[in-house]
Computed example of a mutant assay.
Amino acid sequence: MILATLLALAAAAQDPEIDCDNAMAQFELNACAYKEYERADAAMNAQWKVTAARMKEIDADFDRSQDNRPGYFDTLLAAQRAWLTYRDQHCASEGYTMRGGSAEPMVISGCQTQLTEARTKQLQELIAEY
């Protein structure tokens, strides 16, 4: 169901430009919400690269002679993978408030945007401590 929604949104993205400041029809609102999510996701991916690189630097400088736990990057990667699963499943669940309705994709995209922006901030804060 989510894949069909994303494919429909991708097709809509190829249509003429939508004025998101004046969107009124549900398909426009859905497309604009998805564009916001794409923006947030791109920002998070950019921050991920910075944070991951910093964690790899810390790992390279870390004395492992008395600590055999997973490294900074390995732990971050596992957390990010778990977080992506959480985000997508949580937002699908939140979308069920409009289950089957034309606004469901908008609710899902809005949720994904909100959580992705929060995760970007977490990734920034994580390396601010080092």
Score class of each variant (00 low, 15 high):
M1N: 12
I2A: 00
I2F: 04
I2V: 04
I2R: 01
L3A: 12
T5F: 11
L6C: 01
L7R: 08
A8G: 11
A8D: 11
A10W: 07
A11V: 03
A11R: 13
A13N: 10
A13R: 09
Q14F: 03
D15N: 13
E17P: 02
E17L: 02
I18P: 05
I18V: 15
D19R: 06
C20W: 11
D21K: 15
N22A: 13
M24Q: 14
M24F: 10
M24H: 13
Q26S: 13
F27G: 00
F27Y: 10
F27H: 10
L29I: 15
L29G: 00
L29Q: 04
A31K: 02
A33L: 10
Y34C: 01
Y34Q: 12
Y34S: 04
K35S: 06
Y37G: 11
Y37R: 12
R39N: 09
A40P: 06
D41C: 00
A42F: 00
N45V: 05
N45W: 07
N45T: 11
A46H: 10
Q47L: 02
Q47K: 10
Q47D: 07
Q47M: 10
V50W: 07
T51F: 06
T51D: 12
A52F: 11
R54S: 02
R54I: 00
R54T: 09
K56Y: 05
E57L: 00
A60N: 02
D61N: 15
D63C: 05
Q66M: 10
D67Y: 15
D67W: 14
G71Q: 13
G71D: 14
D74E: 15
L76S: 06
A78M: 10
Q80S: 01
A82G: 01
Y86C: 00
R87V: 05
D88L: 00
D88G: 07
Q89A: 01
Q89M: 02
H90P: 09
C91T: 12
C91N: 10
C91V: 09
C91L: 07
C91R: 12
C91S: 06
A92Y: 14
S93V: 09
E94K: 14
G95D: 13
G95W: 08
T97I: 15
G100Y: 08
G100S: 01
G101V: 08
V107C: 02
I108H: 05
I108G: 02
S109V: 07
G110Y: 06
C111G: 04
T113A: 05
T113E: 14
T113W: 06
T116W: 03
T116P: 05
E117K: 11
T120W: 01
T120R: 09
K121Q: 08
Q124L: 00
E129G: 00
E129T: 13
E129N: 06
Y130S: 13
Y130G: 04
